[in-house]
Nucleic acid binder design. Sequence first.
DNA 1: CTGAGTCAACTAACATGTTAGTACACCAGG
DNA 2: CCTGGTGTACTAACATGTTAGTTGACTCAG
Lengths: 239, 239
Amino acid sequence: MTEATTTTRPVLREINDMTGSLAQRVYQSLKEAIMTLELPPGTVLRKGEICSQLGVSRSPATEALTRLAADGLVDVVPQSATRVSYFSMSEIREGAFLREALELAAVEKVARECTAEQLAQLTRSLRLQTLLVEDEDYAGFYEADEDLHHMIMAFTGYARVGTFAATAWLQVDRARQLLLPTPGRILETVEEHRAVIDAIRAGDPEGARHAMQHHLSKLIVKLEPLEQEQPALFRPLPA
Amino acid sequence: MTEATTTTRPVLREINDMTGSLAQRVYQSLKEAIMTLELPPGTVLRKGEICSQLGVSRSPATEALTRLAADGLVDVVPQSATRVSYFSMSEIREGAFLREALELAAVEKVARECTAEQLAQLTRSLRLQTLLVEDEDYAGFYEADEDLHHMIMAFTGYARVGTFAATAWLQVDRARQLLLPTPGRILETVEEHRAVIDAIRAGDPEGARHAMQHHLSKLIVKLEPLEQEQPALFRPLPA
DNA sequence: CTGAGTCAACTAACATGTTAGTACACCAGG
DNA sequence: CCTGGTGTACTAACATGTTAGTTGACTCAG
């Protein structure tokens, strides 16, 4: 009764229905929970808890934590503790900067050498987005939005660009969970996407670049106030 | 006498004089050997050998290999073997693309908001390069060259940009070991650096961007012929 | 009441034992 | 000679035991 139960709850997704090595699965499970804020910043991750909750030994758990540390999603205090990393506005800005650099380069390249089939896929995605907005299906729109961006990066022909961008984007994406989608913003988003795709269709790299830059600049503006609104999620000590 | 000694040689740098955790040190040691081609592509890395050569147990060795796999420097065949990854021209092009994207964004930002002190540091680096060229100190020049690029990325104020760029650049940097520095090229390099810094000094982001793009484009041209010249180092099977 | 010093409990880091998947050599059959 | 199956040796992946560094609570002097 009086015991102070801390974090021993079914927060982690079951790993049995996942694919890959155990370490890979544990990593995915933890990453998901961190990104959705089910494991909020500051949460202490104990190897023992992870092992018992997911039913694995310490080896895969250790590897998972190592990878999360590399991603910057957890902070390891040697010999002491591992915590979910706090938000940091400077890291969020940095992530946005990196993502912008990569995505602008990508869209520029795609505008220069996009095939008809690829263009058709982009156009199809845009039409889907329009439909989802009409249906007010926010979750679906969110997914279609991400798909479009992934598509553009995939069309560069460089497989790892997407991976890199995703890693760079982690801090931004996590913070984005705190933003509520508004109908007005979503309509704007579709129009911004349209501008990007129009420029790609026109084979206008410079135009595509600017359209994408305009699109991406909208997000960071929304994120900036978070530090004031949710100070608890941000680094208590800017160590 | 007749025994076929494979790879059991003092290829790895001693880890005792290094800092950080054992895993970190093993990682550094292996990475260094791979990047300098002392461990050429295709070399099989056995945990056991690494352990005995460096005098550590399998845990830190495993973590090191995991990180190298994440860097794309080794290919792990599950349950079977871990090999130093082969060169791949498409991966090299991809690395160059990523690095260009990041460095152009960086130099653009720096040109926009560079302080007097930072500009002085850049100018100093350029002067040093001039001296090193006169002395025909190629190794020193190589280092000064890298310093300049790191400096520019550091001046963005974003700590991880450099880390990201370094990771993206790994394949390119490894391939670069095969290029012999020529006096003519080095003189050109200094001039290209000068153009970049001049544009930064002038507060001309667009100009700095183009100067840097011109500079970076020179390298990939030199790398392209390598696939024909050293086919053994490239992927035998484009799996 | 407050501060430094001590110590016990807990953790990550490291070492080692165990399991299971892979690849290669060998052999039987065509 | 070549092909397909089988078995063994070897590896990474996983589990578990051990060590050593950190933290925070407790003690006791000021």
